[in-house]
Design a protein around this nucleic acid. Structure first.
Length: 546
RNA sequence: GCGUCCGUAGCUCAGCUGGAUAGAGCAACAGCCUUCUAAGCUGUGGGUCAAAGGUUCGAAUCCUUUCGGGCGUACCA
C-alpha cells in the first residue's frame, strides 16, 4: 500500500535522471531500527550494479531529483546507500481512511484480473475416511485458492477422483472378504487390504440387506462391494470437508477421461508426434527426451494405463478449459508424477508453464513429545475427523498453514488440543475478540465512532507501528499468492495481533480526550478489518468473544 | 547412485529475487491487573545461521563440494 504513495514520487525522479527501472524493482521496506525512518528503499544500491556507479552517488542523484510530496516529510541517505524516508501524518490519515472504506475487500488486488485459475486439492480416492495427513493438503489447497481469489483471479476449486483403479478394486476385495468372513471366519483377507472398522460395518450392512447372495467372489459381487464402499467413503470425505469449511466447485471424475476418449487421444497424439512407442507389450513415453533417467510406461502390458496417462490427459483437459493458471497441491510422496505430467503436456504442444505444482513436505505428528503414526490401512486408524474432534477445524487449518510448504511440518497434537494461551491461533483470534468487545463497550458508553476522525493526533510508537503494519496487508496478499505460500499470511497476522496487543496495552481508548478516542477507534477498527479479512483467507473464524 | 526438500536459540520455526546490530513462539528467569478481555504487555539470558571453499563493496540468503536427515526414484497412486 505504501507504494501507492511513494512510488510515483520516486518514478518522477528516475525519469528526470533517465534511469529505467523494472517492474517490481522499486519497493519500500520497514527498517528494523526506528532511527532509519518510517520506510526505506535499497533502490540506489540495486541500481548501482545496473548502472555501474557508486550507490551513494546514485542515492544523491535520486534525492536531488525527488519532487516535493505531501506524503513525504524527509528523505536521507544512510549507510551504503539506503534512502530512509519519513512520512507525513497526511499519508497515514489517507491510508487508514482507505482501509476502512474498502472494508471487507481491503487487501484485494487486481494483478490476476481477467485470468482464470484452477486449484486442485484433496483429490483423495474414495477408499475410506481422510487421514490426518490429508489435512495439510486440504488447508493449503483451500487457502491458496482464496489467496488467488484475492489476487484477482477467477478461481475454480476442483477435486479429482478415481473410482476405477487398483485402489478401488482393493477396497471392493476388502469389503467382500469381510463379508465372507461373516459366514466363514477362516476366509482369507487380502494382503494390503483396507483394514478400517468401516469395512466390517459395510460388510454387515450387505449381509443384513442381501444375506448370502454375494458370497461368491465374482464381478457382480465385487461391483456391489465397490459401490457400497465408494458411496460410503465419498459421503464420509465430503462430510469431513464440510466440517473444515471446504467446498469444491467441480468434482472431476477420472472415468470421464476414458468415456470422452481423451485418454485414447493422448496415446494416439503422443505416438503420432513420436513421443511414445510400443515395447514388451506396453506403451512407453519417451520421458528421456525431457531429461528423465528412463522412459516410463503409460499403458501396461495388461492394457491398463498407469497413473501417468490419465494425469497427463487431465492436465490437458484443464488447459483446454481455458485456465491460465493450473495449481496442483501434492504431498512430497507424489512428487514423481510432476515431471511426467509436465513433459506429457509439453510433448503435446500445450503450455506447461501454466501448471504450478505446489509440493508440500510430509507431516510428522507428535503427541506428548513422542512420535505418533496414524496409519491408513490399520484397523485402529486415527482419522482426520478424530483430529478435528480432538482440536477444532480452525486449529487443524491453522496448524497446517503456519509452516512453509517446503519444510516438514511437526504437528503437535498435545499443543493443538490445549485450549490455552500457548496455542498460537488463539493469540490472533483474541486480538479480534478484544476489538469487538471494545466496540461493544464503546457503544454502551454512548460514544459514536466517526470513520473520518483526524488521526494526526496519533503519536505513540505503538500506534504508528500498527498503522504501518496494517498498510502491508495488500503486499502480503500479493507475495503469499505469487509464492503460493499461506505461511506468509500467518506470520503477518501474528505481527498484526502483536501490534494491536501492544497498542491496546499502551494506549487507552476511553477516558482520554475525545479526539484521541476517535482516532484510536479508527485504528482499532482498521485492525479488525485486516484481521477479519486475513482470517477469511485462512478459513478460520473471527470470534467476537472468547 | 540420481532427483528433490530440509539442516538457523534448549524445542518448533521465520528470514533465503544478496543489504544497516540474525528474528518469533514455546521453554527458563524477572516485572506489569482498584480503569476498555492478563488467551495480554514489558524486560533478561540463550546463536561458530551443519562444514569448507568461491562470487563482491556486502552472504543465513547466490554457486561448488562435503556431512547429516525426510521424501521419491514401479508395467502402485
Amino acid at each position: 500500500m505504501i507504494e501507492l504513495f511513494l512510488s510515483p514520487v520516486f518514478e518522477t525522479a528516475f525519469s528526470k535522471i533517465g534511469i529505467e527501472i523494472h517492474e517490481g524493482q522499486l519497493f519500500f521496506e520497514r527498517p528494523k531500527n526506528a532511527e532509519h525512518g518510517d520506510f526505506a528503499t535499497t533502490i540506489a544500491m540495486m541500481l548501482a550494479k545496473q548502472e555501474k556507479k557508486n550507490p551513494r552517488a546514485i542515492a544523491e542523484q535520486i534525492l536531488a531529483n525527488l519532487p516535493a510530496s505531501e506524503y513525504i516529510e524527509s528523505v536521507e541517505i544512510a549507510g551504503a546507500g539506503f534512502l530512509n524516508i519519513r512520512c507525513t501524518p497526511k499519508l497515514f490519515q489517507v491510508a487508514l481512511g482507505s482501509i476502512l472504506e474498502k472494508g471487507s475487500s481491503f487487501g484485494r488486488i487486481t494483478k490476476g484480473k481477467g485470468l482464470k485459475a484452477n486449484v486442485e486439492y484433496v483429490s483423495a480416492n474414495p477408499t475410506g475416511p481422510l487421514h490426518p495427513g490429508h489435512g495439510r493438503n486440504i488447508a493449503l489447497g483451500d487457502t491458496i485458492a482464496s489467496l488467488l481469489d484475492w489476487y484477482g483471479y477467477d478461481v475454480t476449486r476442483e477435486y479429482y477422483f478415481n473410482n476405477a483403479g487398483n485402489q478401488m478394486n482393493m477396497l471392493a476385495k476388502s469389503i467382500h472378504a469381510r463379508y465372507c468372513q461373516l459366514f466363514d471366519a477362516e476366509y482369507p483377507f487380502p494382503e494390503n487390504g483396507y483394514n478400517g472398522l468401516y469395512i466390517g460395518e459395510l460388510a454387515s450392512t450387505l449381509q443384513q440387506q442381501f444375506g448370502e447372495a454375494y458370497k461368491e467372489e465374482n464381478e457382480q459381487s465385487l461391483a456391489i462391494c465397490k459401490q457400497v464402499g465408494e458411496e460410503w467413503a465419498f459421503a464420509a470425505i465430503k462430510k469431513t470437508l464440510k466440517t473444515m469449511n471446504v467446498h469444491h466447485d467441480v468434482y472431476f471424475n477420472e472415468d470421464s477421461l476414458y468415456t470422452s476418449g481423451a485418454i485414447e487421444k493422448v496415446i494416439a497424439d503422443l505416438k503420432e508426434r513420436d513421443f511414445a512407442y510400443e515395447q514388451d507389450g506396453a506403451v512407453w513415453f519417451k520421458s528421456t527426451l525431457f531429461g528423465a533417467d528412463k522412459d516410463r510406461v503409460i499403458v501396461k502390458s495388461s492394457g491398463e494405463p498407469t497413473y501417468r496417462l490419465p494425469d497427463i490427459a487431465y492436465h490437458i483437459n484443464k488447459l483446454e478449459r481455458g485456465f491460465d493458471v493450473v495449481v496442483d497441491i501434492f504431498g512430497a510422496d507424489h512428487i514423481a508424477t510432476v515431471p511426467d505430467v509436465i513433459s506429457g503436456v509439453k510433448a503435446l504442444g500445450f503450455d506447461s508453464d501454466k501448471i504450478n505444482a505446489v509440493i508440500y513436505q510430509m507431516v510428522v505428528f507428535v503427541r506428548d513429545g513422542k512420535l505418533f503414526k496414524p496409519s491408513k490401512r490399520k484397523g485402529d486408524a486415527y482419522t482426520l475427523d478424530d483430529l478435528i474432534e480432538d482440536t477444532s477445524a480452525d486449529i487443524v487449518r491453522y496448524f497446517f498453514l503456519m509452516r512453509s510448504t517446503n519444510t516438514q511440518l511437526e504437528f503437535d497434537l498435545s499443543l493443538a488440543a490445549e485450549q490455552s494461551e500457548k496455542n498460537p491461533l488463539f493469540y490472533l483470534q483474541y486480538a479480534h475478540a478484544r476489538i469487538c468487545s471494545l466496540f461493544e463497550k464503546v457503544a454502551q458508553e454512548g460514544i459514536d465512532a466517526t470513520p473520518n476522525a483526524d488521526i494526526s493526533v496519533l503519536k505513540e510508537v505503538a500506534e504508528m507501528e500498527l498503522i504501518k503494519t496494517l498498510m502491508r496487508f495488500p503486499t502480503i496478499i500479493e507475495k503469499a499468492s505469487e509464492q503460493t505460500e499461506p505461511q506468509i499470511l500467518c506470520e503477518y497476522l501474528r505481527d498484526v495481533a502483536n501490534g494491536f496487543h501492544a497498542f491496546y496495552h499502551n494506549c487507552r481508548i476511553m477516558g482520554v480526550e475525545s479526539s484521541l478516542t476517535q482516532a484510536r477507534l479508527v485504528l482499532a477498527n482498521a485492525t479488525r478489518t485486516v484481521l477479519k479479512n486475513g482470517f477469511s483467507i485462512l478459513g478460520v473464524a473471527a470470534p467476537e468473544r472468547m
